[in-house]
């Protein structure tokens, strides 16, 4: 990543991801029409209650006995909250709210949930990372492990760490989640990408997160 893209991320007033985080803050405090609970009604001040939370996600979800990522946790929370808005995957609202929650972990080292029940899911995520897919028959590992630091045409191949999501991508000219980025990669190798929220994605996220630890959370990051 170039010095100028890093500078854009570092200065909050230059980082367009902070516009989304600001929208997320408003959503955090917004009461549903006709009264009812906001996120803040239960969780209070996010700058205290959400500190370090995103650094631990995906986490084990007792209800589904599966890993759950931050966006699905917010969706599950909304589903229990009367009058809460429906926030589909990758909607502007969900991305903004998760950017705001993620911002509360900025600078915190990524810390994978040590719950042993996550281990088989993490192993599945690793298998997905290493499995060749698509018409180009490439795995994630073929680029992001074996060729990290090299170049694909002019673009630097990164190590594929997820510690800045949701982030502002210059290519998107907007915000997106890690799943959106994973789908881009899958399209790139001519593979069929699973739908948003698919178990494969959450397992991949789980593996990527353990692979990235203890890198500090950078949400909302800026990437080319």
């Amino acid at each position: 990543m170039s010095a100028s893209t890093q500078a854009m991320q570092r200065d909050d007033v230059q980082n367009p991801g902070m516009l989304a985080a600001g929208q997320g803050e408003a959503l955090w405090n917004a009461q549903p029409p006709g009264g009812g609970q906001s996120c803040a009604s239960c969780h209070g001040d996010a700058t205290a209650s959400m500190k370090g939370v995103a650094a631990r996600y995906p986490a084990f979800d007792e209800a589904t006995r599966r890993p759950i990522d931050l966006q699905d946790r917010i969706r599950a929370c909304n589903a229990r909250r009367p009058g809460a808005p429906d926030m589909p995957h990758e909607s502007e609202e969900l991305v903004a709210l998760s950017a705001y929650v993620g911002l509360q972990s900025r600078g915190t080292p990524t810390a994978p949930d040590p719950d042993p029940r996550l281990a088989p899911f993490r192993a599945r995520g690793q298998a997905l990372f290493e499995r060749p897919i698509g018409q180009l028959n490439l795995s994630c590992a073929a680029c992001h492990d074996a060729r990290a630091g090299g170049r694909l045409a002019g673009a630097l191949i990164p190590q594929g760490h997820p510690n800045g999501y949701p982030l502002y991508r210059l290519e998107w000219q907007g915000m997106g989640s890690l799943q959106r980025r994973l789908r881009n990669c899958m399209t790139g190798v001519r593979a069929e990408a699973p739908p948003f929220g698919a178990p494969d994605f959450v397992e991949l996220e789980l593996y990527l997160q353990s692979r990235a630890a203890p890198l500090a959370v950078e949400t909302p990051a800026v990437r080319p």
Binding site: A153, G154, A155, E171, T187, G188, P224
Partner: peptide
């Protein structure tokens, strides 16, 4: 200015 093309665009 040389503009490099991004890898893996939305598709």
């Amino acid at each position: 200015v040389i503009v490099t093309l991004a890898a893996c665009v939305e598709g």
